[in-house]
Amino acid sequence: MKIFQLLIVLLTGGLLIYGMEDLPGWGDPSSPPSIHVSPRYIEKTVEETGTPNMVTSVLADYRSYDTLGEATVIFTAGVACLLLLRKDAP
């Protein structure tokens, strides 16, 4: 039995449950993530980008630089897979 690992896991879980006290409840409309940046995105997205789907407009317009980084990450992952596993790899 792996007592040591189990203790570490229980300690981490206990700390997270202790820290849970300060988090907003389920579906709270006035929680911090819902009142800080996102109202600006929700209210201005159609006016500024002409796209009713807010997820698309935030993904590809407001935060497109972030998306470029993510696309680069998955491109690098694919190239790394090829370089690791191809028979004629250099």
């Binding site: 980008t49 002409g50 796209t51 698309t56 590809a60 317009d61 497109s64």
Partner: peptide
């Protein structure tokens, strides 16, 4: 401008 931005988003997608 919003229609041009929508086309730009389509190209990105």
């Amino acid at each position: 401008i919003p229609k041009i931005r929508a086309m730009g988003i389509l190209g990105i997608e």
